[in-house]
């Protein structure tokens, strides 16, 4: 059998087996993907993120101001998951939005809360904390911030933090009411109708009902992202 014939035979086998056959590089990608994801405790979110939060990256969870929200629920689920795994999480709370009574007391055992005065201060704090190997997740709560609060932030700071997250292979999640930065690997919008009648519903049921959708970057933001990358380069 000549070389060409062999290639043709392999192609025929591949056609017959379809997706059941995988190359070594495919398997490597799968393995790497599996290893570098941190489960969130929410199956819907895990699905959207391809298995969990990408380690070494920033993920944005956007919960718009309005009748539908869910950002706080996602935060509670992540906190609960990290506590179950007996790991530590650091929360950078900008604007004092944290409410201790909203979370089960045992979940708070794994939480280190850092109260920050501004988004810039929270990034500076994350810059310090992201060098620490003791924490497996960093949460930035900017839900109370407006665009003008973060618009002046230098992209170099974002990239420096990303570099450190990558080095430590730690995930960071930014909760905001609108898309913030183009350095985020993924931006997901969370939606669940928030009504008075659901305030007594079990949280586990609310978690199941959370709906996620990937956010498309606006043209302006994409241009801004390219500019940021050029500056960082």
């Amino acid at each position: 059998m000549t070389g060409e014939e062999k290639i043709a035979a392999l192609a025929a086998i591949r056609d017959q087996l379809g997706s059941r056959i995988r190359t070594g590089s495919d398997l490597l990608v799968v393995q790497e993907t599996r290893e570098r994801r941190a489960a969130t405790g929410l199956s819907g979110l895990n699905e959207h993120l391809g298995g969990g939060l990408p380690k070494g990256h920033l993920t944005e969870i956007i919960s718009e101001r309005g009748p539908c929200g869910g950002g706080g629920l996602v935060m509670a689920a992540m906190l609960s998951r990290v506590r179950q795994e007996q790991q530590y999480v650091m929360l950078f709370d900008v604007g004092g939005s944290f409410t201790a009574e909203s979370f089960p007391p045992e979940d708070l055992e794994a939480l280190l809360w850092v109260g920050c005065a501004s988004p810039f201060e929270s990034l500076e704090a994350l810059d310090i904390a992201s060098r620490d190997e003791n924490f497996s997740l960093f949460l930035l709560d900017w839900r109370n911030c407006l665009r003008r609060d973060w618009s002046g932030l230098k992209s170099s700071l974002w990239y420096r933090i990303l570099g450190q997250l990558r080095e430590r292979e730690v995930a960071a999640v930014l909760f905001a009411s609108e898309a913030v930065t183009s350095v985020a690997k993924q931006k997901l919008q969370v939606r669940i109708p928030v009504t008075c009648g659901r305030l007594d519903e079990e949280r586990s049921r609310l978690w199941e009902e959370l709906a996620f959708s990937a956010m498309q970057m606006e043209n302006g933001q994409r241009r801004e992202g390219h500019k940021e990358r050029r500056q960082a380069g």
Partner: peptide, 25 residues
């Protein structure tokens, strides 16, 4: 922050309900 975290025990008491409150400054 405690330097050790014990294994999470079975959650007792009433179930956790509702949304979280995002407090305003």
């Amino acid at each position: 922050l405690p330097s050790e975290i014990e294994t999470a025990s079975e959650r007792g008491g009433p179930p956790v309900t509702g949304f979280t409150l995002c407090r305003w400054q």
